[in-house]
Structures are given as C-alpha cells and as structure tokens.
C-alpha cells in the first residue's frame, strides 16, 4: 500500500504523543503503601524477582476493565506448591486487587481476571510457596485518560 501524506504526518505526531505520555507515575506515598502491602504478604522478607510471570497490556484502552494474567513456576506437589498469590496496584486508592488461594489440586498456579486501574501505574504479583519462599513480578500498565470516551 502507499502511505499518504496524511499518514506520514500522523505518524510523526504519534511519536510525539508517545513521548508526552512517558511521565513519572508513582508518588512516594503510594510506594510506601505498596511496600507495606508487600511486607505484610512476605512477612518482611524481600521477595525474589523470579518464577512469577505477570501478563498485562502495555497500554490499557480503558482503566475500568484491564485484563491481567499470571503464572507461577511450581511443581504444585503436596510438598512444594504455591499457596497464595496476591495482586497489587501501586497507584489505586487502595493497592489490594485480589488474593488467590491455591492447593496441589489446582494443578497450576495461574489465573486471569480483569481489574480497575485508576491511572498509569505498576501492577505487582506476589507468590508464596508452601516452603515459605516469596516471589514477585512487576509490570507497568499505561492507562490512557480519554479525550472523548463518550
């Protein structure tokens, strides 16, 4: 296909718009609240950034409904399985999103849901094993504040 003059112009403007949206997004107070939630979950231990993979859109079309998934590497055996996964949203009025409770009969420590994000922010997944280890993953989701959502 041929690229029209309008599209070339539009592309240039698109780059400018992306540059404009790359602003800092988490305040110190929010970071404190999230750290408190992480500490409460891990019992004070520093979670290892491993084994959890969080899937979220880079840019959410609407903050009211953001699809989010996670999967944790685990044998899910009686002796060694994931017991709990919690999702936190650093920039929401309250960081708690949901806590998932797994058993060896869950087969796999993974889940998908849809969440609300008040603005662009980090989403955090924390996982706890039956052996007492805590793992973490963190993803930034840009939430576009609509011009004209209707």
């Amino acid at each position: 296909m041929t690229i029209t003059r309008r599209q070339v112009f539009a592309l240039g403007a698109g780059v400018a718009a992306v540059a404009l949206t790359g602003l800092p997004r988490v305040t110190f107070a929010e970071e404190d609240k999230v750290q408190a939630a992480i500490d409460a979950f891990s019992g004070g231990a520093t979670p290892e950034t491993a084994n959890v993979s969080l899937t979220a859109p880079e840019i959410a079309e609407n903050g009211n409904t953001v699809p989010i998934s996670f999967a944790v590497d685990s044998p899910m055996s009686d002796d060694d399985h994931i017991t709990e996964v919690t999702l936190l949203a650093a920039g929401n009025p309250s960081p708690d999103v949901a806590t998932f409770h797994f058993t060896p009969m869950s087969g796999a420590a993974e889940a998908t849901t849809r969440m609300r994000l008040a603005k662009t922010q980090d989403v955090i997944a924390l996982a706890k094993t039956s052996t007492g280890k805590v793992y973490m993953d963190r993803k930034t989701v840009k939430v576009t504040i609509g011009g004209c959502g209707g």
């Binding site: 609407n62 409904t65 504040i145 609509g146 011009g147 004209c148």
Partner: peptide
C-alpha cells in the same frame, strides 16, 4: 478516524456492533 483525540483513538463511528459492551461503561 485513526487519529488520536488526546488518548482515544477515533473510529469511523460505525454502528454494526451495537448494542455493545463497553469497557468504560462496564
């Protein structure tokens, strides 16, 4: 259409999907 109005991408405003479930309306 295809351009952004602030953060929203403008469509052609077609009616073929209505009634529609909107993420914004939930």
């Amino acid at each position: 259409y295809g351009n952004y109005i602030r953060a929203d991408r403008l469509s052609q405003g077609q009616s073929n999907g209505f009634p529609t479930y909107r993420l914004k309306w939930q």
